[in-house]
Design a protein around this nucleic acid. Structure first.
Lengths: 205, 205
DNA sequence: TGGAATTTTAAACACTGTTCAATTATATTT
DNA sequence: AAATATAATTGAACAGTGTTTAAAATTCCA
């Protein structure tokens, strides 16, 4: 009988609708101002129901952060067509920055907000698999660059982290509104222009 | 008569004690868990009194963020002894990183948390003077490097921002717990080692 | 149709930032 | 010294937060 299956599907549907509502509200008002009661209102259920599908607010936003990584991975998938590792590395940074700048809130959730990471800790899950697979893609590309003779004298792990930190720094300073100190004419395209500087740096290595 | 002056001093003393209490609680429990009522308890006054000295919670934490910049400036003051701009730039990054890693919460407040910046916006103050003077110190040093023939082909503003973004990226990924994806043996000293990579990069420019 | 299982709710708990009328304390003037 | 004016401080209230839980409503199956 498909009854049990339908029940399960309906449960999943409600879980999905919670996530959809949470995402909608999160994108239009941010993390702090998206409350459990708001989400419940949106799906026209009482607040308590949410706790039958998610342990707490952190778990909801961990699920949303995972959706963000799916989107990022999707965008990164075109990289497999680029055989030259240096070109691939350059394109990777460009995609990363573009993702961050056009999805500020999702980027914030994935790389700045504490909630999704705090959720992992309560699960003593110990591993941030979404971040891990993304960083690994970077690590592999940097490794290939090194195998082709680039980045001599550098160690793989610190160099990869430095590259990540550079692009993350740019996006996060922008998102958290620390770029207004720049010359007004530079503010708008500062990330793009800084990335150009960074690419020039990489080429010299 | 010194009566009026004493009154003013006592007012200032209470304002100071609010800040001291806020700082204490902030450093031991973080921003979200430091409530107005906690601060009031700490100084043994009622919660309402705080609003006669500060407009809101954001203003309190803007004041604390300013204290953080005073400390950072103090640490940066030794840089004036370094005449070679490249050496000064290297030392500057080192001080910045050390400050961030040994004062995680203060760094968080200065460069990640929204409260102090949100406070500026309500004041239509428009300018983040603390960040401005700090970044200007970097800008001046980079300019001197360029005048000595370094960083050829780069533009001052984007390059300076890129350098800031790199060190900020390292500290903020650490503070917001995004570094557990690294090889376990690398996690502990990742910022220091990545900065070594960054210094090697700067030298080649 | 009746009882068991499941889903959903409403109310409660202990918090949060903020406002404001009322109270207390201090200072000034008569 | 007493009365008045001024300033400092309070406590309660408002509207919100995440979370838990006993009770109610619904669905399922024999």
């Amino acid at each position: 009988m498909g009854l049990v299956e339908r029940k399960i599907r309906e449960k999943e549907e409600l879980k999905d609708s919670i996530l959809k509502a949470a995402k909608k509200l999160f994108l239009e008002r941010g993390f702090e101002k998206t409350s459990i009661r708001n989400i419940a209102d949106e799906i026209e259920y009482s607040p308590g129901i949410i706790y039958h599908y998610f342990k707490d607010k952190n778990e909801i936003f961990h699920a949303l952060h995972t959706e963000g990584f799916q989107e990022l991975r999707k965008r990164m998938s075109i990289l497999s067509a680029i055989v030259d590792p240096m070109s691939r590395l350059r394109a990777m940074g460009k995609i990363y920055l573009e993702f961050g700048l056009t999805n500020e809130d999702m980027y914030d959730l994935m790389f700045i907000i504490e909630a999704p990471i705090d959720h992992l800790e309560t699960r003593d899950d110990l591993c941030w698999s979404e971040g891990d697979s993304s960083f690994n893609q970077l690590r592999i590309t940097v490794k290939e660059c090194m195998q082709k003779g680039h980045f001599q004298g550098h160690r793989l792990e610190p160099l990869s982290f430095m590259i990540w930190a550079t692009v993350h720094g740019m996006v996060s300073l922008k998102i958290r509104k620390r770029v207004n100190i720049l010359e007004v004419s530079e503010v708008e395209n500062i990330v793009e222009n800084s990335y150009q500087s960074f690419l020039m740096v990489l080429d010299k290595l």
